[in-house]
Structure formats: structure tokens, C-alpha cells
């Protein structure tokens, strides 16, 4: 998937052309020759070995555990086949968590991506004074432990004497303090905003890294043509950073699906189950509430991951198709 996403040259080719192109698509310099094969695989190996051991293997283990009724302590003996999956398919809490997680991830991504891009463009302007200072300010929330960030906002958002309500009430914007984390319609939204606050710096940096790909002379050329800042953004910056941008948006979404720490410290999944998210669901099943259900939690992880992955792939497929056939 990523392979296609990051392919810079493509668009508007007929089927036949495409097929032809496929054969000759690999430019001369990208082909691997002779003993370079040795180097290519040697370069891959450090990453792949560690990746297999520390990511792929735990993943496979998760899949294996999902077929067992298991508390994570006793020997792995109680094989129940797809039993966990049947149970979880009927667990309304899991599906509620599923829905909440998707909502969280989508809204969160939609807010943080454009905002952080804007900040990154702004904070890489040559003429701007104090770039380092402002970058550090936007980056700073990221270094706070999540538990700490959750605590501050629980205090700041609190309806009894929280700073934000104090301000809102004294400015007569609201007449009665708002219970940001207790109101069932606001709790998830509040989590989203706090999460954007905390993670913002990360995406700002990704964008700043991506913006380095834009050669300066392109801007100079655009400027000679009389382009203003907005046009430079649309016609120069965005097209050039598109391949990396796709990766960044994708990462933003996937990382948002992993929302966990803020839920633990700010709402504990509440009010009721309104902010239950899948990682929190997995955590409580596997490690918090007795009896531990490692197998069940693993099944939840697998089901969630596979469903989201498939949804994204299908969407990616349609996006590509509409990209290729604009009519």
C-alpha cells in the first residue's frame, strides 16, 4: 500500500500504457545490480531482524493467544478456537469502544494535520524572528508524561474550580460551568482537544522535515511568476511534499487509534462508557479487572486491527481508482 502511496510519478494512464509502464517503470538507477544485492539485503537486515523479533513475533503471539482462554499467568492450555471472537463479536462494549476509537482518530487527525502543517510552514519562514523559541513552545507539551498532561487538564477543565470554566464564566460566555469530562456529549471531544494539544509538536516536526524536500529555487521561480504565499503553498509546496504527506497523515491516523493514556488519566472511559476506546478496553480486560483475560483482550486487538486495516485498504483502493479515472 505504502509503495503505491509514495510513488511520485503516475496519474492518468490508460490500462495499456500502465501495463507497458509497469515493465519499464523501474528507472535505470533504481535497479539493483550485481553485488549490490548483497548490500541491499545487508542494509535491510538490522532493521528486519529486530523488527521480526520485537514487533512481528509479539503480533503473532497476540494472534496465538487470541485462540485461548487464558489469564496470562497459567500455562497456555485452554484452546477454544474462535470462541473469543464469537464472544467479542457480541460484546456491545467492544463495538462501542470501536466506534469511539474511530471517531476519536478521525476527528483528531482532521484537526491536528492542517493545524500542524500551518504551524510548520509558518515556523520555517526565513524572515520570522524567534523561530526556535516558538517551535520549542509548540513542542513542549509533547515531553510531558501523558499521566501528567491528563492530570493538568482534568484540573483545568474541572467544573468546580477549573481555570477554563473560571474564564468562561467570568467572561459571561456561559452561565453555568461546563462539565467537559462528565457530559456524555462533550467528554470525547474534550479528549480530542487535549490530545491535539499534546501531540501537536510531533506533527509540526514531521511537516517541518517534509518541507525540507521543497527546493528553494522552486519558490524563487514561483515568486518571479508573481505567486503569493497561498499560491506557493497550493502549487509548489503541497505537490512536492505529497508523498511524505500521505505517510504523515497515515501515521497520524494510526497513532490516534492508539489513544490510551489520556483516557486512563482523564475519564477512565467515562462517563459511563462514552469514552471507552479499544486500547483501554484491551488494557482493562488483560490487566486491570480480575480475572485477567489475556486471550480475550488479544482477540479484541486482532479483530480491531484487521477491521481497520481492511477499511483503510478498501478506502485506499477507491481513492487510487478515482485518482486514476477522474471521470
Amino acid at each position: 500500500m505504502t509503495a503505491q502511496m509514495t510513488t511520485p510519478q503516475k496519474r492518468k494512464l490508460s490500462r495499456a500504457e500502465k501495463r507497458k509502464r509497469k515493465k519499464t517503470a523501474v528507472p535505470y538507477s533504481k535497479r539493483v545490480r550485481g553485488k549490490d544485492y548483497f548490500w541491499v539485503y545487508l542494509f535491510l537486515s538490522p532493521f528486519l531482524i529486530l523488527y521480526l523479533g520485537f514487533t512481528v513475533w509479539p503480533l503473532i503471539a497476540t494472534v496465538i493467544y487470541s485462540f485461548f482462554e487464558w489469564d496470562g499467568i497459567k500455562p497456555l492450555e485452554d484452546f477454544i478456537g474462535l470462541g473469543n471472537f464469537f464472544t467479542i463479536a457480541q460484546d456491545p462494549l467492544f463495538w462501542l469502544a470501536f466506534r469511539n476509537t474511530l471517531m476519536f482518530a478521525v476527528i483528531n487527525t482532521m484537526i491536528k494535520i492542517p493545524l500542524s502543517l500551518l504551524a510548520a510552514i509558518f515556523l520555517t519562514r526565513k524572515w520570522l524572528w524567534g523561530k526556535r523559541f516558538f517551535r520549542t513552545i509548540f513542542f513542549a507539551p509533547l515531553v510531558l508524561p501523558v499521566a501528567m498532561a491528563g492530570l493538568i487538564f482534568s484540573l483545568l477543565l474541572h467544573p468546580a474550580n477549573g481555570a477554563i470554566n473560571d474564564i468562561l464564566v467570568s467572561l459571561h460566555i456561559v452561565s453555568k460551568p461546563i462539565d467537559f469530562l462528565g457530559d456524555e456529549r462533550l467528554a470525547l471531544l474534550s479528549l480530542i482537544f487535549v490530545s491535539v494539544w499534546q501531540i501537536f509538536g510531533q506533527y509540526m516536526i514531521y511537516w517541518m522535515a517534509a518541507l525540507q524536500n521543497v527546493p528553494e529555487d522552486l519558490y524563487e521561480a514561483a515568486e518571479l511568476d508573481g505567486a503569493n504565499e497561498w499560491k506557493k503553498l497550493i502549487y509548489v509546496t503541497l505537490p512536492v511534499i505529497k508523498p511524505v504527506a500521505v505517510i504523515i497523515i497515515f501515521l497520524a491516523f494510526v497513532n490516534a487509534l492508539r489513544v490510551f493514556g489520556l483516557v486512563v488519566t482523564m475519564t477512565g472511559g467515562g462517563p459511563g462508557f462514552q469514552t471507552y476506546v479499544v486500547p483501554y478496553f484491551i488494557y482493562t480486560q488483560a490487566l486491570v479487572d480480575f480475572p485477567f483475560r489475556y486471550g480475550y483482550a488479544s482477540a479484541a486487538a486482532v479483530l480491531f486491527g484487521v477491521t481497520v486495516l481492511m477499511a483503510v485498504m478498501i478506502q485506499g483502493y477507491f481513492v487510487r481508482r478515482s485518482d486514476e479515472n477522474p471521470n
Binding site: T55, P58, A61, T62, I282, A297, V302, V312
Partner: peptide, 14 residues
């Protein structure tokens, strides 16, 4: 790409 999607429930154990 695919592994990024699947939350690993019991990563520390393996």
C-alpha cells in the same frame, strides 16, 4: 504498514 494497525495486546510478554 500492516503491523502499524494492529494494537499488540500483550507485547511485553513475547
Amino acid at each position: 504498514t500492516a503491523t502499524l494497525f494492529i494494537p499488540i495486546a500483550a507485547i511485553i510478554l513475547p
